[in-house]
Amino acid sequence: MSTQDDQTHAVSEQETEGPAAPIILFFIIGFAASLVLGWGIFPKLLYSQKHQPINFNHALHVEEVDDGCESCHYFREDGSFSGIPNLESCMECHEDVIGVSEEEEKFVAEFVVPEREVSWLVYSRQPDCVYFSHAPHVIAGKMACVECHGHIGESDHARVYEENRFTGYSRDIWGKNIAGLAKHPWERMKMDDCSKCHVRENVNQGSVQTQKGGCFVCHK
């Protein structure tokens, strides 16, 4: 028994005789690579880049209409919010080409003439498990569009829509910053952002119907 132990000991000593690999180096390589992967490559892999069917110019439209955002994004009679206008609303003005832009020409040819709804990509669409209503915010809370949606009304082009390959929702929900940091409300629209404002403004934390707080206010 003792002989065998001696031999084993001898062999292991022999192995460590060569130049020792710097363990710390490998640790640093692993550490650095994962940082590059997590901060740099992962966000690029996670989101696909999509373009709107029509490169919409908000700034131009806002100049032309009388009623600001509400000219197109209005509350319906039943209190629900119209969101992105449907083709019928667009056609109130664009039954024919009325301007000089190529995008408008394309819009009329591809959508108006064949009466095909435009499949707009909605940057701010919350997942279906979230119940969100504009009315309490805009009508009761008297919030301006810009408070949540930022200066979208001033943009002269439709920016790239980044779709989460996993969930199918827009990157705007999590925010451009992959760390989830945001300065303004329109840079991130996660649950914590909702509750942060609700707490700060001391608004009703419970459901209007049940007077109960918690999950069921938004997750019905």
Partner: peptide, 19 residues
Amino acid sequence: ALAVGGAAGTALTPLPWKL
């Protein structure tokens, strides 16, 4: 060492939390 480094580094990225 590489794996431990990778794990430590990953924990400091948004990857696990985002996924």
